[in-house]
Amino acid sequence: MSLVARLDAGETLFTAWSGVPDALTVEIVANQGFHAITLDMQHGGHHEDSVLRGIVPILKAGKHPLVRIPVGRFDMASRALDFGAEAVIAPMVNSVEDARRFAAAMKYPPLGERSWGPTYAFPRHGKGTQSDWLKESNQRTLAFAMIETRAALDALDGILETPGIDGIFLGPSDFSIAWTDGETVDSTLESMMETIESIAGRARKAGKHAAIYVMEPAIAGRVVSMGYQLLAMGSEHKLISLGAENLLKSVRESIAS
């Protein structure tokens, strides 16, 4: 089942966050219990070649490949889809014009301006004919616009109304910086929670999906109750740190006993 089909069915899905540009590392993460893996080109080390190669082990593991592109690199959105990504996350979508440009790169005509050329995507995912693939692509691929600033919040309704935008992705750390006028970074800042909930509600009311990065696992239940379905978490740094911490703790407790 595709990512969009699972979200449409109301599932709550977890995506790991990969910043290490190495297909072997991606393979290890993809074989963990996450539903999807996001390859991060913005703050992570992923680049075009690592995205091209990193999607393969994700698909082999039966997981959904997502890509976060760098700020303003809407051309890379089309390339990520041509490599086989099911969804693309665009950071710092702060205006309707940003949303329009992002959607144009994500969707084939007449909805968008994406150029034809699924050289890798079709054989990696493809079933049926290329004509079938063309007809289904606009519905099967997801464009997530990141909401991280006060400007994005002000433009939210217009962003949600933009044809070809399938959902929003809340970046709580950047949002907290904007919310406090640069005073702090706190992804669980209580004073912004009502607004974060309203963003999900407005997205769902518009028929769009709502995703969020969960820095603190304890808040997961709360954001799901707000309407967020796709939860991002677990970079390689975090996974290794937690795994090492738990392993060493168990070994030390065994020795002490």
Score class of each variant (00 low, 15 high):
35 H>Y: 00
106 M>L: 06
93 V>F: 07
34 F>K: 01
184 T>E: 15
101 R>C: 05
91 P>H: 14
70 P>E: 05
116 W>D: 03
129 T>Q: 06
5 A>P: 04
19 G>L: 02
58 I>K: 15
245 E>W: 03
112 G>W: 10
217 P>V: 01
60 K>W: 12
24 L>N: 14
90 A>V: 08
83 F>E: 11
255 I>Y: 12
47 H>F: 06
101 R>K: 14
130 Q>W: 09
234 G>E: 15
145 A>P: 00
219 I>D: 03
3 L>G: 14
144 F>G: 00
159 I>G: 10
90 A>Q: 04
246 N>Q: 11
221 G>L: 10
24 L>W: 15
178 A>C: 04
246 N>R: 11
124 R>E: 08
94 N>R: 13
102 F>L: 05
40 D>H: 09
92 M>Q: 14
47 H>E: 13
17 W>T: 01
237 H>K: 08
85 A>Q: 02
65 P>M: 13
11 E>W: 12
185 V>P: 02
252 R>K: 15
55 I>F: 06
60 K>M: 15
250 S>K: 11
84 G>H: 00
131 S>W: 08
137 S>N: 06
52 L>H: 13
213 Y>V: 01
50 S>R: 08
219 I>T: 07
32 Q>C: 00
69 I>M: 03
49 D>N: 10
230 L>Q: 07
99 A>T: 06
253 E>S: 05
134 L>M: 15
51 V>L: 06
223 V>Q: 13
129 T>R: 10
150 R>F: 00
204 R>W: 05
5 A>M: 11
122 F>Y: 15
254 S>C: 14
182 G>R: 01
74 F>W: 14
181 D>M: 08
159 I>Q: 12
255 I>W: 12
256 A>R: 11
97 E>R: 05
228 Y>P: 00
13 L>G: 15
128 G>N: 05
160 L>T: 11
218 A>R: 09
214 V>W: 02
20 V>T: 04
221 G>Q: 07
45 G>N: 05
91 P>T: 13
189 L>T: 07
35 H>I: 00
10 G>W: 09
210 A>N: 09
59 L>C: 10
85 A>L: 00
5 A>S: 13
49 D>V: 08
248 L>M: 05
239 L>A: 04
149 T>E: 02
193 M>R: 10
229 Q>G: 09
120 Y>L: 12
230 L>D: 10
179 W>E: 03
205 K>I: 08
101 R>M: 02
144 F>H: 02
198 S>D: 09
62 G>R: 15
30 A>L: 01
97 E>H: 04
176 S>A: 09
11 E>S: 15
51 V>H: 09
155 A>N: 12
153 L>W: 07
192 M>S: 12
24 L>M: 09
98 D>S: 02
95 S>G: 07
30 A>H: 00
59 L>Q: 15
90 A>F: 03
61 A>S: 13
124 R>K: 08
106 M>N: 03
210 A>E: 07
4 V>T: 15
257 S>C: 04
252 R>L: 13
13 L>C: 11
127 K>R: 09
32 Q>P: 00
59 L>N: 08
114 R>E: 05
79 R>L: 11
25 T>P: 00
177 I>Y: 01
199 I>K: 07
146 M>T: 12
162 T>Y: 03
209 H>F: 13
13 L>V: 11
197 E>K: 12
112 G>M: 11
231 L>C: 07
248 L>H: 03
